[in-house]
Design a protein around this nucleic acid. Sequence first.
DNA 1: ACGAGGCGTGAGAACGCTATCAGACCGACC
DNA 2: GGTCGGTCTGATAGCGTTCTCACGCCTCGT
Lengths: 334, 334
Amino acid sequence: MAVTIRDVGARAGVSQATAARALGGYGHVSAAVHTRVKQAAVELGYVPNSVARALASGITHAVGLVVGDIENPFFSAVARGMSNVLDDNGHTLLLANSDEDLDRERVAIEALRARQVDSLVVVPSSASASPHLRAAAADAPLVLLDRTIPRLAVDSVTVDNKGGARRAVEHLIEHGHRRIGLVSDEPDISTSAERLAGYRAALLGAGIAVDEHLISLGGPTPEEGYRAARRVLEAPDRPTALFTANNFMTLGAMRAMRDLDLKVPRDLSLVGFDDLEWTTLVDPPLTVVAQPATELGEAAARRVLARLAGADGRPRRVRLETKLIIRASCASIA
Amino acid sequence: MAVTIRDVGARAGVSQATAARALGGYGHVSAAVHTRVKQAAVELGYVPNSVARALASGITHAVGLVVGDIENPFFSAVARGMSNVLDDNGHTLLLANSDEDLDRERVAIEALRARQVDSLVVVPSSASASPHLRAAAADAPLVLLDRTIPRLAVDSVTVDNKGGARRAVEHLIEHGHRRIGLVSDEPDISTSAERLAGYRAALLGAGIAVDEHLISLGGPTPEEGYRAARRVLEAPDRPTALFTANNFMTLGAMRAMRDLDLKVPRDLSLVGFDDLEWTTLVDPPLTVVAQPATELGEAAARRVLARLAGADGRPRRVRLETKLIIRASCASIA
DNA sequence: ACGAGGCGTGAGAACGCTATCAGACCGACC
DNA sequence: GGTCGGTCTGATAGCGTTCTCACGCCTCGT
């Protein structure tokens, strides 16, 4: 059906093997044959079959990405970043969603492995090094994105969650707040644990005792964010400031404030996580800890490329900086 | 390296061919051998090599998706929808970004074709049926997503843009507005042209002459939306209502209103396109034309599956409905 | 002038699977 | 008892590449 390298060879009057050499740029080919073959290739519109190439060479030039949900702006930015550098290097991105479900993640990884991806980038949905991750790491470079897993010695690309959270809470403290609530994700994922640690560190650093009642955890969805926020906001002696350490939960928390008729920053100061488009559009514009999501993806892709280029050695852990973007959602306490 | 079907056969004490039959479920295999082979497969942790399978069978079970930018929430929802149905059917999604650039689109499509994808889903970045699209359509089912291309007879999955836009403008008219501005994308892409047509139809239906000065077009970015909005809002005799027919441009338009100190809906009524998370969070919550983005992706994937299952016949054009979601950004004129 | 060595080329094996084909074996039927 | 039809199995030919090998040729050095 399609034109193969054999057809190209035939038209150029050489064997399939020679045509392959000319096009593949390896071995020895005379200049005359080289141009002849190249021309035959364009004339016939020859496109190398990457499936055959992959089988023969054992290299697919494909990289799998497993995220919780590509609809999450953070993950789509990551995907964009990876795609940016992968596409420029002749690689293709295979995408799968895990829905933060360990079983779906397993299935996705298996499918990607069956496809012989050269490397796998995954945002692990669980904190434990499940066997399928170890297995994946065993036969192709694995890089963990955004979240790490204890006792799994592989490359990772993450963000300084603890520092970012600490900076956010310090910002609140600088405004005179001492009762600062935390709405965050379940602490069994590393990002959440680190942000919690940053929250504690900031409080401790300022000599403020941590009140566990002000910490409200839940799943990473707007709905759970809503519930978590209400829990802490409806308690007696509610906090004067809130740090929401997850973008979807920030969304829910803001709805909770609206329903509770709490105005930001008059009744409550607020710092969120992730700098998304809408954060400048709400009133007041939101002060947030920004994560370099696209860069995270790019860094992961570069890590992959480095490993594929043969970079050996022990796991490298790349950590990018977060940045506190100060807008108008924090007020000083009288 | 990896365990092959030959290894499975060896362990089960049969030939590679028989093992393949047992696992592949074709031909005749005795019950005893069947179970023996299956067990050997699990014991060895056999995972079929889909690259080899693809080469031998000519079917990759891979579908390519080319969008402008996966970071656009509309496109990530589409990708999610496709992934939903594709994953459940043993297919894999290969993702590429075109940046709305014809040349990048061409490169992306070529790469995907070289990978022998069974089918291609493209959000075309140009209105003309460029040769690479025709070529792609020639050797694998092609489905156009969101936007169509005149004179390209392939499957498409779109949304009722004209009806949605018309309904939005009618909503504004019902509030007594007669000077209604339009901020939209360049009309050489079909969605924009259709929305423009819907805008005109609504006006005409109400006996209102369309004032071309109220129509402000630009690229589909927040920045261009900002410019386009300012252009129409700073003109003498500015409109009392605005319809922004693109989600990124809505974002820009809202910034323009803020800079111009125009309050919605007091100074200006507003209807946007696309129902994103943040539209309920801004003050006032935005009235928008909602598009079923995820469903769009699912429909596209189903179309692909149908074609791959052998559904022949002339191109099918699927069109989904839009829905006006009324919130609080429109006020009646005194 | 002759061997060594490099260059250019074609033949062909390998990658791991699908799928066809032919042969071995069995029971059943006339 | 011989033939037929069926079931089960192994051998084997691809799929379109990559890549090794062997061979012929030319050039160069001695």
